[in-house]
């Protein structure tokens, strides 16, 4: 790969990535949001993050990517977070579950 091809690819991806992140912040921040848009935006975080959990857990291997140990870790982590209302507690509980499951299976 030539220096020009590599550099142009990186720059183009960089500009598009920045525009993806900045575009709506810059264009919407000074405008009045329509009520329907406000309503939709309230659900972006739970929708994207839960989809990301599935995507990360599958690890690019489709449905075959799910491991019992990972699912158990997620469930215990979720339960611990729910009960304690503290993210680090959920993380520790989830990781301990993962390591325990991997050790015994």
């Amino acid at each position: 790969m030539t220096l020009f091809a590599a550099l142009s690819a990186v720059l183009v991806v960089g500009v598009i990535t920045y525009l993806a992140r900045a575009g709506l912040i810059l264009s919407l921040a000074d405008r009045t949001l329509r009520p329907t848009l406000q309503r939709a935006l309230r659900h972006v975080a739970p929708a994207v993050l839960s989809a990301m959990v599935v995507s990360l857990t599958a690890g690019g291997e489709g449905l075959d990517g799910f491991e019992a140990a990972e699912i158990a870790a997620l469930m215990v982590g979720a339960g611990a977070t729910l009960v304690s209302r503290k993210l680090p507690v959920g993380l520790v509980a989830g990781m301990l579950t993962l390591w325990l499951m991997l050790a015994v299976t």
Binding site: A45, P46, L49, S50, M52, V53, L56, T57, G59, E70, A73, L74, G77, A78, T81, L82, R85, L87, G90, L91, G94, M95, L98
Partner: peptide, 14 residues
């Protein structure tokens, strides 16, 4: 690699 997924689940729940 599993840690971010556990954190994201927690963030969703909270």
């Amino acid at each position: 690699d599993v840690a971010p997924a556990i954190m994201f689940v927690g963030i969703v729940i909270l």
